[in-house]
């Protein structure tokens, strides 16, 4: 069988595209695992939680993040594209005012930041925001 150049490109192109796809779930599962560990496999609703993150972060070493979820018992932050996705978990005590917190985080590249709130009634809420990173954090 003779293989024309065009055929060859199609075949290898597909192979590359496919291997690229196969690599994605491998990383996404890290985030899924974290979410599962936090929620215990419970269903996650939308709304009732707000995540403020800059659209474009010039410096990935300090990206200001503000998260708030009225009625939350704890909020977990995840950076889906970091080598270690977990960022922080805020646990609110009895004297907490608004169920909100601000901090500064590291992002290695452009990615989605995910926030999941565990409400006081045991339900879970999730939201996410995409942050474009010009210069990545985490060193390297």
């Amino acid at each position: 069988m003779t293989l024309s150049r065009r055929d060859f490109m199609t075949v290898t192109g597909c192979a590359v595209a496919f291997s690229g796809l196969a690599a994605l779930p491998a990383h996404a599962s890290l985030v899924d695992e974290q979410i599962k560990a936090f929620t215990g496999g419970a269903e996650i609703g939308q709304g009732g939680i707000e995540l403020d993150a800059p659209e474009i972060a010039e410096n990935g070493n300090t990206v200001p993040i503000n998260v708030s979820a009225p009625g939350a018992a704890s909020i977990m932050l995840l950076a889906s594209g970091n080598p270690v996705p977990s960022v922080a978990t805020f646990n609110f005590g009895p004297l907490s005012g608004a169920r909100a917190g601000s901090t500064r985080i590291r992002l290695i590249k452009t990615q989605d930041v995910v926030a999941i709130a565990k409400m006081e009634d045991g339900t879970f809420k999730m939201t996410q925001a995409t942050v474009k990173v010009t210069i990545g954090g985490c060193g390297g």
Binding site: N61, T62, V63, N66, A79, N82, V84, S86, V87, A88, T89, F90, N91, F92, G93, P94, L95, S96, G97, A98, A100, G101, S102, T103, R104, I105, R106, L107, G137, C138
Partner: peptide, 24 residues
């Protein structure tokens, strides 16, 4: 003695960790 906030931090928190939150 009463808790306001308890944060678990991972390496993705920036140098010189900063937190802002509210308390009653």
């Amino acid at each position: 003695g009463q808790n306001v906030i308890d944060v678990t931090m991972e390496p993705a928190i920036s140098t010189n960790p900063y937190f802002q939150f509210e308390a009653v």
